[in-house]
């Protein structure tokens, strides 16, 4: 048999034959390395400033994490289905502005605080869904490659956010800020909601048909179609998911900054894609673990906040992130079974 042996690094579910190999393959597992990196980074920051593990800093970490994790999750779905979504960041900006207007209007018309915020959230999700409609039409009907289609919506979103908001922050909503800072222990309610959605996203991706089809389409769309999967419908649905999650993230920004600023979320698509790459997800589609992107987002968040915490200029952030991306990419290319040109 001329088959090349593939250790379980690339097929996590495969039961390795011996306990020894199990340990070896676990250590070679990118998830495990990422976990060590995360712990290492946290220990590093704590070493420099022992208040880093303090409760309030942890709360902030989780807030920042929750601003990033949904769009990273969305990006994971899109990328593992063989696409890419550059428009998530600007969708946050448009939806946060539109949501802010909606809430301002509703509160001005004596809707209660809670209904206003709830309807504002729907407005944000709705904006995300509209971005999806455009993305889905451009990709499945106009047959643009996802990169170009979402580049169109990226620019459009950035522009519209500025046009709608006339360049300034829309609304000032102390009620939202008060509500968003409540919670229990290190968690805010909003953070808990985001974490719940994140867990559901992970479960759906790895334990349901929908998730299986996502990987199948990313791996070989022809085979997926031959197996009876409605590829166009699935791809469209992935962009819906991405749009809605970006819209909801817009609402999270609204709560956390108590207003709708047109620069909210701008550029965050790169952070999301970076988290996906660091998490070991193949940009060619068809593979990856959701836990990887959670670790990726966690590492990026800890690095970002930690640099601030130990008084290193935030301008270094991008440089450090670049280092992590490079490390992750090297780890991935060393993985057995990766196709190489040379």
């Amino acid at each position: 048999m001329s088959t090349v042996e593939t250790p379980a690094a690339s097929s996590n579910e495969a039961p390795p034959p011996s306990p020894l190999r199990r340990v070896a393959s676990f250590a070679a597992n990118q998830q495990f390395i990422l976990f060590l990196v995360l712990v290492g980074v946290m220990v590093f920051f704590d070493f420099h400033n022992s208040r880093f593990f303090g409760t309030s800093e942890f709360t902030n970490l989780l807030v920042d994490f929750s601003e990033a994790v949904l769009i990273a999750g969305a990006e994971m779905y899109v990328i593992s289905s063989g696409g890419i979504d550059l428009s998530v960041g600007s969708t946050i900006a448009v939806s946060t502005v539109v949501g802010a207007y909606a809430i301002q209007y509703l509160e001005g018309h004596h809707f209660g605080e809670f209904p206003s915020l709830l309807l504002g959230t729907f407005a944000c999700a709705g904006v995300g869904a509209m971005v999806w409609v455009i993305n889905a039409l451009l990709i499945t009907k106009a047959r643009l490659v996802p990169f170009v289609a979402t580049l169109v919506t990226l620019s459009m979103g950035e522009g519209l956010a500025l046009v709608f908001s006339k360049g300034g922050t829309v609304g000032y909503d102390p009620a939202a800020a008060v509500w968003s800072s409540t919670g229990f222990w290190i968690f805010r309610w909003l953070t808990l909601m985001v974490l719940t959605v994140t867990v559901v996203l992970g479960l759906v991706l790895h334990f349901t048909r929908y998730g299986r089809y996502n990987f199948a389409i990313g791996s070989n769309p022809f085979a997926a179609r031959a197996a009876g999967i409605n590829v166009n419908r699935h791809v469209a649905s992935v962009y819906v998911l991405s749009g809605v999650l970006a819209g909801l993230t817009g609402m999270i920004w609204y709560f956390n900054t108590s207003g709708g600023a047109p620069q909210n979320g701008i550029g965050n698509e790169l952070e999301a894609i970076a988290a996906v790459v660091i998490g070991g997800v193949s940009l060619f589609g068809g593979s990856g673990r959701f836990t990887g992107i959670i670790l990726g987002v966690a590492i990026l968040t800890v690095v970002h906040d930690g640099l601030v915490f130990i008084n290193i200029a935030t301008t270094w952030n991008e440089v450090v992130v670049a280092g992590f991306i490079a490390l992750a990419a090297v780890l991935q290319s060393m993985r057995p079974g990766t196709k190489r040109l040379m």
Partner: peptide, 13 residues
């Protein structure tokens, strides 16, 4: 689908 294992391919769809 190269990225899926044998079981996942056998049952795809």
């Amino acid at each position: 689908c190269d990225n899926l294992d044998i079981v996942q391919n056998m049952y795809l769809g």
